[in-house]
């Protein structure tokens, strides 16, 4: 049994999910069930962080994954971001790393700098 709090809405149902049968208990609506199953089978997160930028008015360029990426890759993505240094000017939406760690997820700039 895995215990989770659903974050689909502010109500925050306390879910109990059977990891083998994927049976969800405690959800007040179908979205809770979907959330619970996703969190057990394939949890994903959007990662937001920064990379170094030179020549701009500030030192860090905010970036994010353009779609959610496997939760287990979070710290590996951070390591990839540490290697990056970009130069001014950058427009938002620019791909900073394409297909990061062989996933189909890109790292994109969040701001014009």
């Amino acid at each position: 049994m895995k215990k989770l709090i659903c974050i689909t809405c502010p109500r925050g149902c306390h879910l109990e999910i059977d990891e083998e049968t994927l049976d969800v208990k405690g959800n007040a609506c179908p979205r809770g069930k979907e959330y619970g199953i996703n969190e057990i089978t394939n949890p994903k997160r959007t990662i937001t962080s920064t990379v170094k930028i030179v020549g701009a008015e500030i030192n860090r360029l905010p970036v994010k994954t353009d779609k959610p990426i496997a939760k287990s890759l979070m710290f590996d993505v951070m390591k990839e971001l540490d290697k990056i240094c970009v130069s001014h000017p950058i427009t938002r939406g620019t791909v900073i790393i394409s297909n990061v760690l062989g996933s189909d997820v890109n790292i994109i700039a969040c701001r014009d700098l």
């Binding site: 937001t48 994010k64 969040c110």
Partner: peptide, 9 residues
């Protein structure tokens, strides 16, 4: 769903 800098932009 946007980041803060994107919302500001």
């Amino acid at each position: 769903e946007l980041t803060g800098p994107e919302y500001a932009s």
